[in-house]
Design a protein around this nucleic acid. Sequence first.
RNA 1: GGAUCCAUAGCUCAGUUGGCUAGAGCGUACGAUUCACAUUCGUAAGGUCGCAGGUUCGAGCCCUGCUGGAUCCACCA
Length: 900
Amino acid sequence: MKFASSYEPGEYESDIYGAWEASDIFAPSTPTVPVDNNGDGKDDRDNKNTYSIVMPPPNANGNLHIGHGLTIALEDSLTRYYRLKGKSTWYIPGADHAGFETWVVYERNLEKQGHTRFEYDRNELYARVWDFVAEQRGNMELQLRALGASCSWNDLTFTLDENVIDRVYTTFEKMWNDGMIYRGEKLVNFCPKHQTAFADIEVEHKDEKGTLWDIAYTYDGGEIIVSTTRPETLFGDAAVAVNPEDKRYKDLIGKTVHLPLTNKEIPIIADEHADPEYGTGAVKITPAHDFDDFEVGERHNLERIKVIAENGTMVNVPEKYYGLTTAECRKQVLKDLKAADLFRGEKQLVHSVAHCYKCGTVLEPMLKEQWFVDVEKLASVAIKHLEKNEIKFHPANKQKVLINYLKNLRDWNISRQIPWGIAIPMFRRVTDAATDEPDWIFDRRTHLKEIEVAGVKYVRDEDTFDTWFSSSHWPIVCTNWSKDNFNPYYPLNVMETGADILFAWVARMIMMGLYVTGEVPFKEVYLHGLVLDAHGQKMSKSKGNVINPMDLVAKYGSDAFRLGILRGRSAGMNQAFSENSVIAGRNLCNKLWNISRLIQSIVDDDKNASSRSIRDDGSVRSEEPRNDGRDEAFREERISSSYATDHMGEDWICREINDCLNQVESSMKNYRFAEAVEALYQTIWDKYADWFLESQKIFKNTSLLKQTLETILIALHPFAPFVTEAIWQNLSWTDGFIATAKWPNKLKFDPISAAEFESLISVVSEVRGTLQALPGTNNAKKYSLLYGNDSLVEDNLLLIRTLTKVPAINALDGHPRGLRLALANHELYLDVPEKVVTEYKDALTEKILSVGRELDALNARMANPNYVEKAPEHLVKETKDQIKEKESLISRLKSQLELI
RNA sequence: GGAUCCAUAGCUCAGUUGGCUAGAGCGUACGAUUCACAUUCGUAAGGUCGCAGGUUCGAGCCCUGCUGGAUCCACCA
């Protein structure tokens, strides 16, 4: 026996993945490099049949977290679905060097060993981190396999691969030549602990309590009071600004004031930046240490005096303050201001403060020379393409959000002062020699510290690229796009990633894709939200509510995890996740396993015994498809398939499976994964197992059982790859891998027969419901069923008996007796004693009342002339039919009640 | 200040051009059960769809306002 009594994922999963990988079935069938078969100089690949998707590269040296689990479940479901649909699918895996993240981990390690980064030069550090990452790498890839990701492993791209660096340099060179790269001394967000700058997008703003101090700046005959939260920066003040409309200060504009604690005089200038309503309406301007002041400084040509060094201590200040930390300096300045009687008060306030997203240190706006990308053109091109709807977003509103972001985008600082990353390929001329040569030149030889060009020496810039600069090339580098060859895998069919990196990554990929290739890099974007814990709380280490996907995979299986995490989730929404949904997934896998186990045993029995099975009436089922006078065309169709339906339950399940396939197809097209899973879940469990298989315990249509099982297995495969493959391999009649099977065709069936089974279901349900509602227990065993003039019941005695568990079903002889069931078109009685009927009276009364309420509502609708006039005809007709039905039901129930 | 989203059963969520009696899973209650599955089977209870208006024959869905919550962007001397 190949099928154990329950499905144990641990026994199958790794073997199955190994078998898939060994057979290399995840590589795309259409080649990924240009092919010229007939020598006409043109690429002969087929563009129509490809499906490409790239994995957002997980950190090479990390473990996968729950968000990765969701990403893989989504992307792999798409990939497997389109593979079954016959597309040449290319799911490209990746690994991220994760510049800053990895660097932080590595630097922490160094510190633990008593070292600092300053003991090593850049190349040495790079080599050391490379080894460090190499050691850790592989773990993440194993976890991707455990999640079932059907990606093309030979094409794994690491963000520091040569072709990536090469592509990034090519783009950078093009931008440099296009004048889009400039070196500027601008304020950047600088982390004094990590000694590096950040892009605006990497900064975390937090509301904090602070103090606003009022300080008097004096002039001949008076003083002007400014308010500041950063008194220590006053040494860097270049002016005091007031609003040009502010009458209080009108006369002071153009005069100078004395800068406290110094011998300096600074001007009073008029600028919109000063808000008359805020504080005293006068504000000190420190262009080197505040983003707004920087801009004011630009407008008024003010000196940028840098008074805080990279290490967070004071420079360019009177000796007394030199070398103090900013905090120490603040204290001292406040003390000295009080002593000089220039302190005019303080008050508390809440303001938002920029923090390093990694270590939480307060970021210092720092004047630095950095490389910037002028984003104006990039953004405006991207906006144009977005407005033409060249990319479809899920959820749709993100398109607007993204356009809005791009409209307000500021220039992009791409320099990072971290050794771990792609070196910026720029070299600076060694200064002394007077020459006409440019200060900076582009050169790819970044492995060298120093180069010589035309007899002039240049030294490499030590900085590395912002990781988003290189990862914005991801669709381009993963698909090996090149400008000389048509590439059927670019643009990608879809970009699936977290909604939180819409700006940081998706926006930049779009800009870069358009800049490099002229095309948008993907046709659709699917953004997933955060996976929250069971109570809707964000997962975090400090809260201790982090769920590790690998734990769940180990406990319940990979499929269970995938089914569980897809359930109840829609695009862009942050949604709760709990173990319960994974358990439900595990149960479905086991259910499917046992369904297969049952069918295999029927198939096995069928081989041994006659292929004819016993009919309800005891006769032997005919091999020939029945011909009961129905449409000949239908009969032709039916014969053309590999099975023949011989009972209405069989037609019905074919119809239900077809509906399910339609739902899955349309759900996948619209990225409604949860709905696809839900449809499969219900079809497999509530319909296939609970009704169809129960009925097949009597009829046993082997060829149909095989065909329907294959159909539901394939349809579920994208979501639950392992259990479906495990079953496929265990079944006696299936070949190859289910992973590369063909998406099933629709099943043929007789719609009239299918609808009849629906009536049988309602009969059985009514019997069950009534039996439960009767007083006493075990009623199903006690009372038999009586029928009068009811062909549906008469033709299905054995089936109804099996499904309801009543001991007998008999034709009514003589007068009706017992309890009549509340079914509109069937005359059915439960053969219960008078006493039980009497006890059931209350329930019956309640039933009459509730049907009466429904009838009233229907009548009210029909009484409205507007409804009859304006509503669609079919609805009006439906209402009329229902009224008839309810009326007859009510009259039957009433007569039943009178009998009691 | 600007923008986006959300509010439906005890919990987590579906509900796609407005159409019958608003669904699911989990949970709860009651019942069943040797032979595909207790990771099972059956039955049931549970919702004036955040609030107030409006449009319509008809609103969970569309419009307006309000309340409560989330997120993003900008600003915060």
